[in-house]
């Protein structure tokens, strides 16, 4: 187990290096000189050369990458070319926004998606099942940014029930106003995922119901409620939990589209703005940050499996 864990950790580190290296290389394809971005409106070529030297931009790309990497390991992600602010604290300041969005949306999509999936699976092909599944299909077919705009138009602009986007910290506006600002983004994001979770829960339930041990349980005369709760649900929700880990991990790296529509100052917005502004340190920071969560989520899911499921062998 320990050896397995160690191997996994080494691989995690390699993945991070790979992701950051690839991002770095992609950005070297972009013909924009960061020194000119830093230098501003009335820069002279001389000033630009000075800045290039100061930022190490006159060195080969692999030297520059090594500089990024060795600093990043020590938690220093450098300074933004555009705002001159330290990247790491900027990311950390944006992180609560991303967590708020992700966690709230996750609670909603679980609260909607899984019950719908279970009810549908218990009465497959019934009217309620069909309606629920069409609802789920619409959910996974809707462009999330468009849904955001529609909800904003209806609930924020026309009815005036919610703010037109924006974020409010708990420390400033209080808990209720924090929720008030996040309700629309939560539901926007949750609508998409609720669709996926309802479908997945239903499919897994149906699959499990056809398996031998369920038939055995029923044959033993166990009460239906017990069969469903104890045998079917537990077995069919395992893949859903896996999926949940991955999805949350992915969203922790920023939900670019939702953040853009609602003007939430989260990680995704930082990354997107950074790409537009050719702000390499910010992009490197944000992408690496996002990758950390994706990889961690994978790792946690795998480890939990390794502990829970004796069939997984540590190889």
């Amino acid at each position: 187990m320990t050896a397995y864990f160690m191997r996994r950790m080494i691989w995690v580190a390699l993945l991070l290096v790979g992701v950051s290296l690839a991002t770095f290389v992609i950005f070297f394809l972009i013909p924009a000189n960061p020194a000119e971005l830093v230098a501003g409106k009335s820069a002279t070529p001389e000033m630009i050369r000075n800045i290039e030297h100061r930022l190490g931009l006159d060195r080969p790309w692999y030297v520059q990458y090594w500089r990024f990497f060795s600093n990043a390991v020590r938690g220093n992600l450098g300074f933004s070319y555009i705002t001159q602010q330290k990247v790491a604290p900027t990311l950390l300041a944006a992180f609560p926004v991303t967590i708020s969005l992700t966690v709230g949306a996750a609670i909603i999509w679980l609260a909607i998606g899984i019950p719908i999936g279970i009810l549908s699976a218990l009465k497959p092909r019934s009217l309620s099942d069909r309606i629920a599944m069409i609802f789920a299909l619409v959910g996974i077919s809707t462009p999330v940014y468009w849904l955001g705009l529609v909800l904003l138009k209806i609930f924020a602009d026309a009815l005036g029930l919610f703010p037109l986007g924006d974020y409010m910290e708990i420390s400033r506006g209080g808990f209720l106003c924090w929720i008030h600002h996040l309700v629309l983004p939560w539901f926007t994001l949750a609508f998409l995922y609720a669709g996926w979770y309802a479908r997945m829960t239903r499919t897994n339930m149906l699959e499990t119901m056809g398996e031998d041990f369920v038939r055995t349980a029923r044959a033993k005369g166990l009460p239906e409620r017990r069969v469903v709760l104890k045998h079917i649900l537990r077995n069919s929700l395992t893949p859903v939990v896996t999926m949940f880990g991955m999805d949350v991990g992915y969203l922790m790296g920023g939900a670019v589209l939702t953040e853009t529509v609602f003007g939430l100052p989260g990680i995704g917005g930082l990354a997107w703005k950074g790409i537009q502004q050719r702000d390499l340190p910010m992009v490197m920071g944000a992408v690496t940050f996002a990758a950390v969560f994706i990889i961690l989520a994978n790792l946690i899911v795998d480890l939990v499996y390794a502990v829970l499921d004796p069939r997984v062998r540590y190889r």
């Binding site: 790979g18 991002t23 920023g254 670019v256 990354a271 990758a291 994706i294």
Partner: peptide, 11 residues
């Protein structure tokens, strides 16, 4: 798969 794919595409 370790990449945030939308960000990768944008980049």
């Amino acid at each position: 798969m370790a990449f945030p794919i939308l960000l990768l595409a944008i980049a």
